[in-house]
Amino acid sequence: MLELRLVQGSLLKKVLESVKDLVNDANFDCSATGFSLQAMDSSHVALVALLLRSEGFEHYRCDRNLSMGMNLNNMAKMLKCAGNDDIVTIKADDGGDTVTFMFESPTQDKIADFEMKLMDIDSEHLGIPEAEFQAIVRMPSAEFARICKDLSSIGDTVVISVTKEGVKFSTRGDIGTANIVCRQNTTVDKPEDATVIEMQEPVSLTFALRYMNSFTKATPLSNQVTISLSSELPVVVEYKVAEMGYIRFYLAPKLEE
């Protein structure tokens, strides 16, 4: 038996909106730790890792570890039917072939339940070791989204370079080139407007903008994004999910031949 009650149901809506175009089907894993997901896109270039810790739920009952295969587009369709202020409860029976999403309005005057068919998915889990990064950039998520969108109108790839000067996002295409440099800026009124660059050593990597733009669909989840870079390792683009967890996107770099 599984029963997870999330008062801030809009978080789950936002999570699904941010992953449904990247991954078609995925197994959601439920354990005492929390509600999690790890899935790759069909070309095995990008990976999403989600964790919503059990403490973040108002009620969290998970009698035994459960893996539920879901079509993320269908799950997103169902969660779209929840109001932004609704409380969302996820329910499933051990060994069952359905999951139920229950939506309660804040005043309890409307209660809806949507039952979705589960599916069997052969999931390939990758072991992601803890890594030391050469550079970690924390910046406003809206700014990062704007940069990715702007550069993708010029080119297909972005070179992200971190030096003492700051972080540089560069692209080139048929019509020309573009460079955007963001410097560390901690003298801001609001902490979410800060740009913080922690550099162990300079690093420069190239990534497909199509994926970066897809990751920025998580922007409504968090005011800040963290970009962790290391030579010849996938970049990690992380958005915190309120106080309860994170959504991390890994993207393999373009490799020089």
């Binding site: 070309s43 990008a46 010849e232 996938p234 890994y250 393999a252 373009k254 490799l255 031949e257």
Partner: peptide, 14 residues
């Protein structure tokens, strides 16, 4: 010239 890396080149299946 560059090629798109795959995740399996960096992380091992478990």
């Amino acid at each position: 010239k560059s090629t798109q890396g795959r995740l399996e080149s960096f992380f091992k299946p478990v």
